[in-house]
Simulated scan of single mutants.
Amino acid sequence: MKEFKNKVALITGAANGFGKEFLKEASRRGMRIAALDIEKDEVEAAAKEAKELGAAEIFTIQADVTKVEDCERAVDEVIEKFGAIDLLMNNAGVVVPGDIWDTPVRDWEWITHANFLSHVYFMHKVIPIMMKQGTHCNIVNTCSVAGLITSNGMPAYHATKHAAVALSESVSYDLQAKGADISVSIYCPGFVQTDLHHAERHRPEQYKDASDPYYTSKEFAMGQKIAEQVIVTGMPIDSVGMRVFNAIEEDQFYILTHPIYTTLIGKRVTDMLAGKGPNLIELRGK
């Protein structure tokens, strides 16, 4: 996509973090924007702030991306409002730290629906619309460098981000096979100063169980503490919007923003080809 003015963008998770930065950059480029988030008041505040940057129009949608019916309703609302979707940004996501034997199954279900299946829900609904439009369109899926490498302590996050990467790559092949004028990109950053460590306050009711002792355990508290530490000490978020939108202009598939992980990505591929498994001592550099 080379021209953004008056084009339609649907951005999920638009109230905070990356989504808010995408919302602001889309506004600077004069787009018509549908800003979606589970937090109604927060996304309305973010939209009000972004509108002052030059958006042609912004309207907000309150929706839970873990529910397919909410995702489909949201797309219907965008089409009713704007009549088209030129840019889909699947950005909403959460983090669930913890070992597989400690983390409740409901947490796996939550993160799988938020980080992976929400991409399925929106692309399933939006791609046919984009195909019918007959114009060049873009899809950007926020995937994380956690979808390209692995580490200890957050198997649920790595699993869902790897799934999102594989989904995006496969969908790109399928779109090419169909001759569809739709470009897919995946945004795979390392640690950035987002709102991700506050994911618990966005947890939908269907994934809550205050009676489960896990949520008062030291394992849960430690996971939350580590998540906060790596986020608040991450890269400043200011340049994210421009970086990602420049990549959209160039139809770039892999959007990598942390060169420090390049060696780890390469090592993982080399280890695969050599049949070598994960080594925690090597990972920790000891």
Rank of each mutant, 00 (worst) to 15 (best):
H119K: 12
V120E: 02
Y121D: 11
F122V: 01
I127L: 13
P128I: 05
M130S: 04
M130G: 06
G134V: 07
T135P: 03
H136T: 15
H136E: 06
C137A: 11
V140H: 07
N141P: 06
C143M: 12
C143W: 02
S144K: 02
I149F: 00
N152Y: 03
N152S: 11
M154F: 06
M154H: 09
M154W: 03
P155Y: 00
Y157S: 05
Y157L: 05
A159K: 11
T160W: 00
K161Y: 03
A164F: 01
A164C: 09
A166P: 00
A166W: 00
V171S: 01
V171N: 04
V171Y: 04
S172E: 14
Y173S: 04
L175W: 07
Q176C: 14
G179T: 11
G179H: 03
C188I: 01
G190V: 00
F191Q: 07
T194A: 07
T194Q: 07
D195A: 13
L196T: 13
H197N: 10
H198M: 13
A199T: 15
A199W: 10
R203G: 05
P204G: 09
E205R: 10
Q206C: 10
D212V: 03
P213C: 05
Y214T: 06
S217C: 08
S217E: 01
K218E: 15
E219S: 13
E219H: 13
E219G: 10
F220W: 10
F220D: 02
A221P: 03
M222T: 15
G223K: 00
Q224W: 00
K225D: 14
A227D: 03
E228I: 07
E228M: 10
Q229P: 08
V230S: 02
V230A: 02
G234K: 11
M235H: 10
P236S: 06
P236C: 08
